[in-house]
Design a protein around this nucleic acid. Structure first.
Length: 388
DNA sequence: TCTGGGGTCCTAGGACCC
DNA sequence: TCTGGGGTCCTAGGACCC
């Protein structure tokens, strides 16, 4: 009994949500990202991208903006050079979350076995739905697209395939508005010609390494000797690369997951120095801990561990973790523990980012475990603690 | 004018224990 | 009598994804 798994991916999601309330911008190059322009209340007005100054990146670009070479993840300053005439809006996450809930509810009304993959995409297990065995899921996918459009006014791309990996690849084949049905017979003609980088799990590093080894496409990866892949990529990842390139993937659609960690971080408008900007850093640090504590309480969770994250002017990322004596959701407690983590970090460079992370999460109403913990070594303490 | 913010998972070395 | 051999936990960093 073969599975039929769908991947549903919203088209240019954030930008499309903005266009719902700003139809006059339809067809124009529009980029979402960066902060609010100074001054003004209410919905921000789009401003020319060429006027942007700051450290933000492109979160989403409409298709006309993509035609100018802009893509998500690109620094906005770089996008501004490529497409100064494009318009920019800061993201409105509350609006996107509302649209996200709406499209997921619409999809769930037709196919209830859903895995959440973030704000703009889901997997659905269609295997047991009526009619899917007959047409491979094409009619069901069309019904999903219609339901999503009716509920939100937004378009999405869907692929139905034997597993998640192929469904994810397929949903990109015909964007926007794509409806793709893949079977095992499509692997060689439709999947193998694609660049290896397209596979979910092959990122920029692995793609570069594969390329240097002479592997550009998924077909070339599929033809590679698994033992050779293991030599270059390790037993686990090497074996996975081989399996994935054959189109094999047994992962189930997971309908529920508990969060493992929560975090808050911020990149400063300009680099801050642990000594000369100590007061500003201290205020920001406290603010992050307060927001993290709010996030924990909102979810009814307490943190057993607190991590601190720094990024220095050279874009080097450092982190330290600290176990709490007792799990907590209180800002002052998180702040104290994070301060201890900070004390163990080198603080001799200007910083561009500061973050805090809560992990070892447990329900706030869970009985407290009192098992003795191993004491971590004190470790070296260097630099100034810029707050406390 | 480089490079956001929120996550998950894996790895590798050292600590620690028997 | 120049160095055991697992096993597990902890930690920091990094790849990857949306």
């Amino acid at each position: 009994m073969s599975r039929r798994i769908a991947h549903l991916d919203m088209d240019a999601f954030f930008a499309s949500v903005e266009l719902l309330s700003r139809p006059e911008l339809a067809g124009l190059p529009l980029v979402i990202g960066g902060g609010r322009p100074a001054g003004g209340e209410g919905p921000p007005a789009p401003e020319p991208l060429g006027r942007y100054r700051g450290r933000g990146v492109v979160t989403t670009a409409t298709y006309p903006a993509r035609a100018l070479g802009v893509h998500s993840g690109m620094p906005l300053m770089q996008a501004a050079r490529l497409a100064p005439q494009a318009l920019r809006l800061p993201p409105d996450f509350e609006a996107y979350k509302a649209a996200s809930r709406a499209f997921k509810a619409a999809a769930a009304s037709l196919a209830p076995t859903i895995e959440d993959r973030g704000i703009d995409e889901i997997y659905l297990d269609l295997s047991l739905l009526p009619g899917v065995a007959e047409d491979g899921g094409r009619a069901c996918a069309a019904a999903l697209q219609a339901a999503v459009r009716a509920a939100t006014g937004l378009s999405c791309s869907i692929a139905v395939a034997p597993n998640k990996l192929l469904a994810k690849l397929g949903s990109e084949l015909d964007k926007p508005g794509g409806l793709t049905v893949l079977g095992p017979e499509d692997l060689a003609p439709r999947i193998w010609p694609l660049p290896a980088r397209k596979l979910n799990g092959i990122g920029p590093r692995a793609a570069d390494k594969l390329s240097a080894l002479g592997v550009q496409t998924l077909g070339e990866l599929a033809a590679a000797d698994p033992a050779w892949l293991i030599v270059h990529f390790g037993p686990r990842y090497g074996a996975w690369l081989h399996e994935a390139a054959q189109g094999r993937d047994e992962r189930p659609v997971v309908t529920h997951r508990e969060p493992k960690s929560l975090s808050r971080e911020t990149t400063f408008e300009r680099n801050l120095h642990p000594r000369s900007d100590r007061a500003a850093l201290g205020t920001l640090f406290t603010r992050l801990c307060e927001r993290l504590a709010e996030d924990l309480r909102k979810r009814g969770l307490r943190a057993g561990r607190i991590g601190v994250k720094l990024r220095d002017a050279n874009f080097r990322t450092l982190s330290r973790e600290q176990t709490l004596d007792t799990p907590s959701d209180e800002a002052a407690t998180l702040r104290r523990a994070a301060g201890l983590g900070l004390k163990r970090m080198p603080l001799d460079q200007p910083l561009r980012l500061l973050g805090v992370r809560a992990s070892s999460l447990r329900a706030a109403d869970a009985p407290e475990a009192t098992a003795p913990r191993r004491r971590p070594p004190a470790g070296p303490q260097t630099g100034d603690l810029f707050a406390d």
